[in-house]
Design a protein around this nucleic acid. Structure first.
Lengths: 208, 208, 208, 208
DNA sequence: ACGTAAGCGAGACGGTACGTCACGTCTTAAG
DNA sequence: CTTAAGACGTGACGTACCGTCTCGCTTACGT
């Protein structure tokens, strides 16, 4: 980590700790290590001690940057995962929202889904990590749906009386429930069925 | 639990462990202890050691009856909680399903909701407990909705193309998602809004 | 530690954990490890983690057997060190006590003296270890002097008004003080001078 | 310590750091803070971070003035404690030395005795602090006894063959031993008994 | 008068060990 | 054969304090 004296590969004139404010170096190293560990063994592998070992950042320092190991893991996972794909634009609200649900379904069914579930689970135990999870793992996904929703409302394709929050959770909740409880499949077909059901409504006759 | 010597209230001739198969006594004692502990401090309080202490059942025995502490806790919680209230019967599918969602919402928002969330979280880590959770905590609740759903289909009030499983998860998923992630409120009004949105559908124009 | 399955070198018929009551095995293993570590690097080397590693005994178990690492170290050191040499018997109280002081002086000046000092120091910080230190490291040494003292009193060679405790501490105190503070030498000549001074008295004219 | 802007009580024209060489201010502030902390919670409370916080002197600076926290503490404690009381002058060597031993005994038995013991203990671990301890905490006390001793020798009341160093350690050693190990009382009566024993000698018949 | 060097406040950092916790496995002895 | 009792190994936790380091400001001094 700190350059070994006499083995300094930096050209003269370059400071030992270049521009990088000390904190940044640490922050990055820890996140990188956590990301790798999560990819290798999921949350259980992303032990604080493991992060310490791999990143070279000391445990005390880690706890100055994050309130708990779960928070660190959530940030690391979120940063890697929240890569904003361009929002779907199929021309219709139905198509857009269905596609988005399908994407989230694929995410849940994939390798990352497992880690996502582990993080969500950990946040139940560790409330201070909840904020990190919501900020780094949840917000972007919910916002993506909410954005589509608002566009649909503007176009007059969506029920105007439904809040974006409500619509979002109705569309995504079933997927997350299945991911966590494991009582039903999560394949692409299921995502479609869920999207259809939620978008069309469950009842035949409209009401209140 | 363990018969106190010299303080045996049983009449002579009655065996110490009468008809009751030994296992049942153990099973019950453990579940009772776990139930109390869950009520007092949630899942974190329902330590195996705590169950051992309170129930008088030894640890080795517990692990012969349940594969993990989470499994025991799930069974204990499920038995207390799955008390079958009579299904709502308002005369309309809309009313019934809305009422049922409202009930689940109230459950999630209440004290038991926290434990439910902790158990669901624990099952992500402990897959063998997942089966217990699904059997004792989840099945009854999902079945209650599914039953209403099937009735609605029979009456022609529900979209016939939607499977009961799908309908159930769409109705309940949003609640569970909010319970776990804590990003939005869980009050009774919210339950209504979610039920309305799911039952009416999110879009204005029907499709596919 | 626990026999690797399939690699058991024991002849058939020999139990895995023979007669040895479990606790004894642990106690011994820990003490042995601590003794070695103390010999290799003094108290600083006798880390709990090091004892864990070397002995195969888990940390939690160690803390069930000893209240602190210092206590464990004190017991280990005392057991090795308190080997009862036959008490000196030169025929005179003067000779016996001088010889005993000389022995303690040699002990203090030697390698073990350093560890003795470290333990005594640690007991100031860790009061619950103090009892272990007194029992395992101090008692035998003080008792050896006190025994000589009582014999001297019986023979009429010692001042009868002086308690054994007092005599003991006057004879040994100077050595320990020098060991701890390091302000003066601890060679054999010094031991003699100290013994002479204490036995003869510091003043020329007797008093009170 | 660091001049609060806008709250400077100094008359105009007086420099912020007048003649006082910078180092002195720092030295004093650190010692004052350490002294207070020692009084409040003994050595364990006199953490470097605590001194930093209370004195406003930075950690790096502290380590330029003292080699270790123990050294700083020893100096602080010594300066407060080594207040030279006028040496006893009872007219006889016996009286003077007894009084001095009694004083040291009272010191050991009091609140400061605990800190003294903690410092002596710390110096075993931290050799570079040993010099500070000897200079600030030990030297004055030993010198006071030695001075009395030399006077006694001049007056012919003391055994001339005994070096001042030896006499001093014989008189004080027992007290320190009891302070550190805690195996016996340290009351005023004990101080008297120790002084008597050492001054009169332990044996009845003079020898060598 | 100004630049240079030193002294300093601030505090992040790596390191090492601590003592604690709960899990799930295991042994022993009693019935 | 089942059980109570509880010791044990495992693995991670979060904390504490050490002593080192860098940064950037301020003062003192030399020219």
């Amino acid at each position: 980590m700190s350059p070994v004296p006499g083995a300094d590969p930096r050209p003269p004139g370059v400071l030992a700790h270049p521009t990088t404010p000390r904190s940044l170096r640490v922050h990055d190293a820890a996140l990188r290590a956590a990301t790798e560990l999560l990819a290798e063994g999921g949350l259980p592998a992303a032990t604080m001690d493991a992060v310490v070992t791999r990143s070279g950042v000391s445990k005390a320092t880690l706890y100055k940057h994050w309130p708990s190991r779960t928070a660190l893991a959530a940030e690391a996972f979120g940063l890697r995962t929240a890569g904003a794909a361009p929002p779907p634009d199929t021309g219709s609200a139905r198509g857009d929202l269905t596609e988005q649900v399908r994407r989230v379904g694929a995410f849940c069914a994939g390798v990352d889904g497992r880690v996502f579930a582990q993080l969500l689970a950990a946040c139940v135990t560790d409330p201070c990590a909840g904020a990190y999870f919501r900020a780094f793992c949840l917000a972007a996904r919910r916002e993506a749906v909410a954005e589509l929703w608002r566009r649909a409302v503007r176009r007059g394709e969506a029920a105007p009386g439904v809040a974006a929050d409500t619509a979002t959770d109705v569309l995504l909740g079933a997927l997350v429930l299945r991911l966590m409880a494991g009582h039903a499949a999560l394949g692409p077909g299921e995502a479609d069925r869920i999207a259809d059901a939620a978008l069309n409504g469950l009842l035949t006759a409209p009401g209140s």
